[in-house]
Design a protein around this nucleic acid. Structure first.
Lengths: 220, 220
DNA sequence: GTCTATATTGAGATAGAC
DNA sequence: GTCTATCTCAATATAGAC
């Protein structure tokens, strides 16, 4: 990230950039993409307009950078989950836990995404949120399928299992967005997933409740 | 509403009113609450401004009427579910099915609600969506508790079970909002709920109807 | 009263000095 | 990299003709 030449600057490289990203997130959240003005964003960041244009080209640029930051990490998680080894349940839990963790770490950016996705048109550049949603679905579906193939899960409708799992992840995230007080945390998500694994276990092989409550995977 | 003809109405009572509600829903969905002008709404409904004023007083009035329409039915469902008899699972499924049905019947109003809830401030009158969400949580939690008390569900964290069930309902609704093509339908929701009932069944006992989690879709 | 032309504002964006 | 100063443009507001 730092410039190769190590040129001296008034503030160290990227500080203003980070401040801008932060203030843009805050203001996009509070007033929407259209409602947040470049003036407010730079004022809140304690810099002047040209600084924003220097780093991000324009208002759309800083918005896209926000989105890209979140989604690139998300893509990494999906990719990583394909190479990780372990039981299907462990891999699913790992994936959900990591996605949830990413969500919690950037919940303010997530709010902006939700507002753009569900909210009215605001002139923001198009982001194909549905594609990311489908990617997650595909990965989860693949892991479920593998679990069935290995006999870890019972035979049944793969999509039903996928929806049950995504429902757990989804409700955890949205409970955070909606009621930060009484919401689902990482452990809660892990426990809800356990309920689902038990529900999709093969007919004869249901392990007793709470036989493995750890979220990091039973054996490693 | 006043069916008495105190005023001169050119169309039969309620027709213009319904047309206004429909066009307002459409325009609130497309352009947001703030973006939809009274002019457009009445034009789309084929009536004149005074007609809107007569039925709804103003833009806020027609918006509140939309919200009230959805939520009053929702409240009825919650209330009704308290008096219905049957197993906890049946009552939970019945409640979720009915809520989902209500959602599907008024999915365009639901879109407006989502946009207001998650979207940026648009100057719309405040609606306490969180309260409705909490109400649903409370009813589901109560039904889960009863299921545990009657031995239908195993002992365990009541909230975890509640979140699993709400996750299923939630993901069904949002899959409809997001990807109308490949979404969850009533049967799908029922099957996902079965998975969860199995997952929260008492340790030794298998839910008779949940013994087959296979849906008609099979593997996809 | 309503309409239209003009003024004003406030938005995003840029040039060039340092 | 950052600043001061400025530009363009569209929406809004207003004034004055009709």
């Amino acid at each position: 990230m730092a410039t190769a030449k190590g040129k001296k600057t008034r503030v160290s490289d990227g500080v203003a950039r980070e401040r801008l990203l932060k203030s843009a997130t805050l203001l996009f959240t509070r007033k929407g993409y259209a409602g947040a003005t470049v003036r407010e964003i730079v004022a809140a960041a304690g810099v002047t307009k040209p600084v924003l244009y220097y780093y991000f080209r324009n208002k759309e640029g800083i918005y896209l950078e926000l989105m890209r930051g979140g989604f690139s990490r998300f893509d990494s998680l999906l990719e990583e989950s394909l190479s990780v080894r372990g039981s299907a349940a462990d891999r699913l839990t790992r994936l959900c836990t990591q996605v949830f963790s990413l969500f919690l770490d950037h919940i303010d950016v997530a709010r902006v995404m939700y507002a753009i996705y569900y909210g009215p048109p605001q002139g923001a550049p198009f982001i194909d949120f549905d594609a990311y949603h489908r990617n997650l679905q595909d990965v989860v579906r693949g892991l479920v399928r593998e679990g069935i193939r290995k006999g870890e899960f019972g035979k049944g409708n793969v999509d039903d299992m996928m929806w049950a799992i995504l429902g757990a992840l989804n409700v955890a995230m949205e409970s955070r967005l909606c009621q930060p007080g009484d919401a689902v945390d990482q452990d809660g998500l892990g426990r809800v997933l356990k309920i689902i694994y038990r529900g999709i276990a093969p007919a004869g092989k249901r392990d007793p409740r709470g036989s493995d409550v750890r979220g990091k995977g039973g054996r490693k």
